[in-house]
Amino acid sequence: MHDQGKFGGAGGHGGGFSCVDFDLLLSDAIDGKLAGADFAAFQHHVAECAICGPMLADTQAGLSWLEVLEPAEVPANLVHNILAGTSLRDVAARSAQFEQRVDWRERATKVLERLLVPVFNVLRQPRFALNAAMAFFSVSLLLNVAGLKLSDLRLSDLRPSAIRTNATLRYYETTSRLVKYYENIRFVYELESTVRELKRATTNNQPEQNSAPKKKNDNTSQQPERRNENYSRRDEETILAADHKNQMLLFRAISPRDRFAQITKTTEGVFLTMTDKFSTRTPGRLA
């Protein structure tokens, strides 16, 4: 008698041939590789077993159904797509390897190009070009005014001490140039000539005033220096016309070179005082 079969069916007869044996030999039986005693035992078991018999029939039927299936037609573009896909991956992989081999300078150049090209494209527009040209001319003009020539620059000029020295020299040169310029303009020239004429006109009165002993007439309020500070803030100035209580400032002008001119009115008359950085001039009576 057979044991209980693998699939739960009753065991069949066949001289120790079980459902497990059937299962093991089923493929060989279907493939036609089973022969001899094994084949006989197999056939006997199939005939006797209520489970294995139908199982063999179903298996053979299923195989016959599957034989109906023909190979499916491959889509027309499939091979092409596969080749294209693998080629693209190949190209991508190779380009990635190439990127890794590229020198860092070239990579940096590429990155800069990517960043700067759009900026340059914008700057190439006429309005930006015009602005750039104006800025260039402005800088050139400033450099010329400052007396700087780029072609004269040397490496030694870039030392801090040299820069300081050059800057100081340039400052004084520029200052003196500006002073000369202002001295040569017509207004200053006319003013100075007028002052000279006034001075000359007042020299006639000067001996009388100078003849008085020790200039006693020059301080009735006892505060001439304080008033001078108010006018010019220069200690060396002497204003002879400031020795009256009711003195009134009528006009004051200061030239760029610290030249100082003021007209004051007092009870004794109207006086003009001229001073400059290094000298004090005697005031002259105007009226």
Binding site: D23, S27, A61, G62, L66
Partner: peptide
């Protein structure tokens, strides 16, 4: 391989039962 054979036979039988 035994498992393969078993699966193949059971698969065939299941297909046949479904269709028949």
């Amino acid at each position: 391989e035994g498992t393969v054979k078993s699966r193949i036979n059971r698969g065939r039988a299941e297909l046949a039962r479904l269709l028949s």
